[in-house]
Computed example of a mutant assay.
Amino acid sequence: MTGEQIYTNAAIIRRDAVVHGTLVVRDGAIAEIAEGRSEKGIDCEGDYLLPGLIELHTDHLEGHYSPRPGVRWDRTAAIQAHDAQVAASGITTVFDCLRLGSDEEGGFEVGEMRAMADALKGAQTDGRLRADHHIHLRCEVSAPDVLDHFEPFQHEAMVRLASLMDHAPGQRQFQTMEQYILYYKTKKGMSDDAFDRFVEKRRHNSATHADRHRRILAERCAERNITLASHDDATAEHVAEACDLGTRLAEFPTSLEAARSSHETGMSVLMGAPNVVRGKSHSGNIAATDLADAGVLDVLSSDYVPISLITAPFVLHDRGMALSDAIALVTATPARAVSLDDRGEMQPGKRADFIRVRRTGEGDMPLVRSVWRQGARVA
Rank of each mutant, 00 (worst) to 15 (best):
297 L>W: 11
289 T>I: 10
28 G>P: 13
164 L>T: 03
152 P>T: 02
14 R>W: 03
375 G>L: 02
250 A>W: 03
96 D>P: 10
118 D>W: 02
287 A>H: 01
154 Q>M: 01
357 V>G: 05
194 A>E: 15
311 T>Y: 09
226 I>R: 07
340 L>V: 11
35 E>S: 10
232 D>C: 10
333 T>W: 03
31 A>R: 13
79 I>T: 11
31 A>Q: 15
20 H>F: 00
117 A>I: 01
272 G>I: 01
120 L>S: 00
246 G>A: 03
49 L>G: 03
242 A>T: 04
365 M>G: 00
338 V>M: 06
205 N>P: 00
92 T>F: 07
157 A>D: 15
55 E>G: 08
120 L>H: 00
282 H>Y: 01
365 M>F: 13
175 Q>C: 01
101 G>S: 12
103 D>Q: 11
130 R>D: 03
245 L>E: 09
66 S>E: 08
159 V>I: 12
278 R>Y: 04
213 H>D: 04
23 L>H: 01
173 Q>V: 01
307 I>G: 01
194 A>C: 05
270 L>I: 13
180 Y>S: 08
111 G>K: 06
267 M>D: 10
278 R>L: 07
237 E>C: 06
364 D>Y: 08
52 G>L: 10
130 R>S: 12
32 E>V: 09
155 H>W: 00
103 D>G: 15
106 G>W: 06
244 D>W: 01
97 C>S: 15
335 A>M: 13
294 A>D: 13
10 A>P: 04
50 L>E: 05
105 E>Y: 11
22 T>S: 12
124 Q>A: 15
12 I>R: 04
370 S>N: 12
197 R>Q: 13
222 A>Y: 05
20 H>W: 00
220 R>T: 09
241 E>D: 15
271 M>H: 02
43 D>H: 12
224 R>E: 07
346 M>I: 11
38 S>P: 12
230 S>N: 10
2 T>S: 15
198 F>I: 08
64 H>K: 12
220 R>H: 12
233 D>G: 07
8 T>W: 10
12 I>Y: 04
320 G>K: 06
232 D>H: 01
334 P>I: 09
309 L>D: 05
27 D>Q: 03
